[in-house]
Design a protein around this nucleic acid. Structure first.
Lengths: 340, 340
DNA sequence: TTGTACGCGTTATCAC
DNA sequence: GTGATAACGCGTACAA
């Protein structure tokens, strides 16, 4: 049976109030008293019960991180940074996976409000619709949105400029001299922000380069997994007039696409250039290494955590958006000097 | 202000006891009463406060998953399976990263006892010493060990047969006709179980094949990251008499090693065969695809979660060990028929 | 079958 | 500066 505050108080012959003050580091405690209490605490090996504390204060010290799948490298790397950043501010992190299930996203957003299991939610959906957010009253649990780029002034938001990221990558492909540039990662519906924005950025960059869009070059991918990239690349390479370059809307798609090209004996980048978006570590060691757009995950994690902490401390503060920087990283998959 | 049990009772003109019975699904409630209470619950949008429930019952419904780094693909894939399995049993999962810090491991193990933040710990250390476990009294918080293979009868244990896994992989390399077989992933100290056991398995398989061990072929790796594999492979390939094959003690090490070989213009597997252990998805799409030892992560996750749940329900049950199956998966990195 | 009352361990509100 | 005591919301022994 663990020692309680009361036990310590009895042992030190003081009131629970005084012990609580000492534990909380409250200033109004005499030095002698503090030493006395500290001694009793050590002797009884007392540790505060965080559950009781939570019941009283309403704070759990826990953040929820909601991602589609934790084993998608981008989310794993993000989670790592977020857990570290949260730990620095005294928060622990609970991870929830939505799969790609709308109902789970909805349940988490609506249900989490009153449950008091965590103080705030870091919500990084691969697929999301703004209507989903209607489920979440602004006054409810603190929420920080991650990775989308549709700021409506109601929620805190650490955004990625998806449009510009895709445009920059496309522009790079244009600059390498290719004009038959395909894309993988579109989705049949316009409801999901990431594919829509990246798709728009891709088309905008083509347009600016004076390259007309070719519908058959815009391949869809239900999820952003390697297998989806592989399948989509096969469809592209089966075309009568296959592309010279492919922009994949995620690095994982790109890994699949590169493998598909290799399985057909194509050389990358000589026969086909491939670029991704995310900058996961895998792409730095792959053969060829992957040209991609870095999203500055540590920055996103740091901002997200400090922002949710601020909102927890002051729920009335106006919502703010911050856009994470990004940068095209040119590697072998678009510009190898020597064939691999 | 969320509605409480008392509010519901007042609204329905019944006692809190009755409402509690309905919420808990207790059988001894009349049908009319149940409908009445359910109506009040719906009307007030009442949801039980899990913190108060925890304070009362001592159960949090939360499991802690302790891994070195969540962004190491093996752990990310394991976490995914564990979160899913836990969700099926009504548990949520909190993730803690130890880095490779002994103090953090120790703090988690010793400190977690009384904190009541979770009901049990799933502990999957990359580095661990049995002495570390001395920190954790058997009577304390339910604990299930993951991935090591030193059963002492005190802890529940979902083990991997590290020795045999490494031996099987080594044997496969021998069967492909190579005799100059190096290994990456040893560690200067014998304190960490995984490198020691995999190292022993590697040596045992060599011995069985009548191949004498060469100290310069046993390369160490501080962590099991791509960069460590890259650096270790460079050292091996710098040897006057470089190996024809390398067994890497993790797939991530293998990815680094393959990249190092490629950077020297070596062909895999013609000039150098590479094998790993873990079977992360990355190795199924890499060029060449990676021969590895599959560890059946879903099995490990399922067993670990059901075991910790059982122990939470009955802390006095005798500790048990279960060994997860493994299998060598032969891919291109050791046996490609056509050069890539 | 249902109602009453207490305790889980902490923090906060009063007094002194 | 310190002490008593009332909440926080729920589960359950005990009583009815």
């Amino acid at each position: 049976m663990p020692a309680t505050l009361r036990d310590v108080a009895a042992h030190a012959n003081v009131s629970v109030r005084t012990v609580s003050n000492v534990v909380a580091g409250h200033p109004h405690v005499s030095d002698a008293m503090r030493r006395l209490v500290l001694g009793a605490i050590a002797e009884l090996d007392y540790r505060p019960n965080p559950v009781a504390r939570t019941l009283r204060t309403g704070r759990t010290g826990v953040l929820a991180l909601v991602v589609p799948e934790i084993d998608v490298p981008y989310f794993a790397e993000l989670a790592r940074e977020i857990i570290d950043a949260a730990s620095g501010l005294g928060y622990r992190v609970m991870i929830d996976q939505t799969g790609h299930d709308h109902d789970r996203e909805r349940a988490l957003l609506t249900g989490a409000d009153r449950t008091m299991l965590f103080d705030g939610i870091l919500f990084s959906p691969l697929v999301t619709r703004s209507e989903l957010l209607e489920m979440h009253p602004t006054t409810a649990m603190p929420l920080v949105l991650l990775g989308e780029h549709e700021f409506d002034g109601r929620y805190d938001h650490v955004a990625i400029d998806n449009h510009q990221a895709a445009a920059d990558a496309t522009q790079h492909l244009v600059q390498t001299g290719r004009s038959k540039i395909a894309a993988i990662g579109a989705q049949p519906t316009q409801a999901f922000a990431t594919p829509r924005q990246r798709g728009a950025g891709y088309l905008a960059a083509l347009d600016e380069a004076g390259i007309g869009p070719r519908p058959e070059y815009l391949e869809s991918a239900a999820r952003y997994h390697r297998a989806d990239g592989y399948a989509a690349a096969e469809r592209l390479l089966d075309l009568a007039d296959p592309p010279e370059a492919i922009l994949c809307f995620s690095d994982l798609l790109a890994m699949g696409a590169m493998r598909a090209a290799a399985d057909r004996g194509l050389r990358i980048p000589e026969d086909l250039a491939v670029a991704g978006i995310d900058d996961i570590e895998e792409g730095r060691y792959s053969r060829p290494s992957l040209t991609t757009v870095s999203l500055d995950t540590p920055f996103i994690a740091r901002e997200a955590v400090s922002r949710i902490a601020a909102r927890i401390d002051d729920p009335t503060a106006p919502a703010a958006e911050i856009v994470a920087p990004h940068a095209v990283l040119v590697r072998e998959s678009t510009t190898a000097s020597t064939p691999l």
